[in-house]
Write a protein that binds this DNA or RNA. Sequence first.
DNA 1: GTCTATCTTCCACTCAGCGGAAGGGGAATG
DNA 2: CATTCCCCTTCCGCTGAGTGGAAGATAGAC
Lengths: 260, 260
Amino acid sequence: MRAGESGRTVASRILAVLEAFETHGPILSLSQIAECSGLPLSTTHRIVNELQAWGALARDAQGRYQIGLRLWELAQNASRRLRDTSRPFLQDLFSLTGETAHLAVREGNEALYVDRIYGSKRVPRASRIGGRLPLHATAVGKVLLATEEPWFREAYLAGPLKPLTPQTHVDPAALAAELAEIAERGYAVTGEEARAGACSIAVPVNLGQGAVPGTADAAIGIVALASQLPLLTRHVPVLQGVSRRIEAAFQHRPLPSGVR
Amino acid sequence: MRAGESGRTVASRILAVLEAFETHGPILSLSQIAECSGLPLSTTHRIVNELQAWGALARDAQGRYQIGLRLWELAQNASRRLRDTSRPFLQDLFSLTGETAHLAVREGNEALYVDRIYGSKRVPRASRIGGRLPLHATAVGKVLLATEEPWFREAYLAGPLKPLTPQTHVDPAALAAELAEIAERGYAVTGEEARAGACSIAVPVNLGQGAVPGTADAAIGIVALASQLPLLTRHVPVLQGVSRRIEAAFQHRPLPSGVR
DNA sequence: GTCTATCTTCCACTCAGCGGAAGGGGAATG
DNA sequence: CATTCCCCTTCCGCTGAGTGGAAGATAGAC
């Protein structure tokens, strides 16, 4: 090994290459990948070629790279059970409410959207499959936060609370009170806090997989135009019914054991 | 390096670890990963720990590993544009026909399902998001094959044609005639060829991204109970209409340029 | 309490990986 | 058409990251 970048593992270099597609867009040239990942051109070249040969990356006719379908296919294994189980019920939620429906889990301090049902109706897109938004700015995030352990909640509220819009709630004391209220009544509502023009309502889903009973493993919600905000709470019974359906289906679905 | 496995790159070892989750199930112990990937335990341990730290793998409370959400999120970049563009129209297809709707692309000799819309209605699951099935056994696959270049089609038909069910068509001459017919009339129908109890109909989607004009980049289809087979062709107008909508939407959607 | 299986850590050894430099190829420009 | 520029590809002397067997730790089964 040269002394230039000593101490950096091959694995960390490979992951830095993949990370370049996280932070710098879905299609990159070799030079762009090298620049983003902080690797010399020839090192990048070697790594990228090996990833492409396997199918983790794909090269287009112009010589640019993107994430390969084999990696996409492999990665579908992540939370597949949750997505497969809940999809039909999210479909029902979408049909019954006429609004975009989504499913999110907590990943660190963010809500990660693992599924989303939407149609042709134009709504401002606040969520995106495989997208993340801060917990405090989203209805699903607030629900996940409200049902977390107190020490986590307090640590979260003690950290920086970025506003995504002028309407985002960022006062820690006010948020703490709001979360207590959410925990009591069992749902959260947001109005133009994640994105201008959109409002959302969400309820928790307890899958029984969390280490601590009572914390929600997931949350489901719907998103509508901001003008619908006064009417959102009428959807609570449907949301809670769908949540219970997902919980029941998840318990009854056998956990994959490992070897097929 | 020890002489034991000389010649094997670190990248190939990392990819072998990921491959273990492709071939041996979604949840594996450290020993299982070592066994599946053909790596010594301590080598596997080091690689797995580094993948876990980054988020490519996740370890559960029992010490078993699965694909991590960060990798899942990153991998959503693969064909995101196609999925995002077509999703609302697949939703319409689902609503209009009442049947499971899916979208597939060709990956080698298989149809890879990149999206699928389904509800609570029980249908035998012939397709799975991130799943693959041989081209000759599926309606979407037959459509993709029918619009491919002759040399590819001939090479495919010269290879092994595995039956998935007793109804799978495997005679190369009969298949060639069938594919010519599909190319002419613009849709394919299968009856219990991919899975017992299920039938399917599909049409091509031309996204204009293939290197060769006229080959379909993708196909959409619906799946129904086998008893619906005589009625499937009534859905052709809707399928073709939805296909045209997807094509139009895809052309008008700007291609991501790389750097955000 | 004992046994078994799995996971974690250590470390002497070595070759896979490194990255700068040079050359090739393609596109843009004049 | 020639030149220039930018990006990609290939090469290779050097070296430290990676190796994997062995020993110890941990947890579960009996």
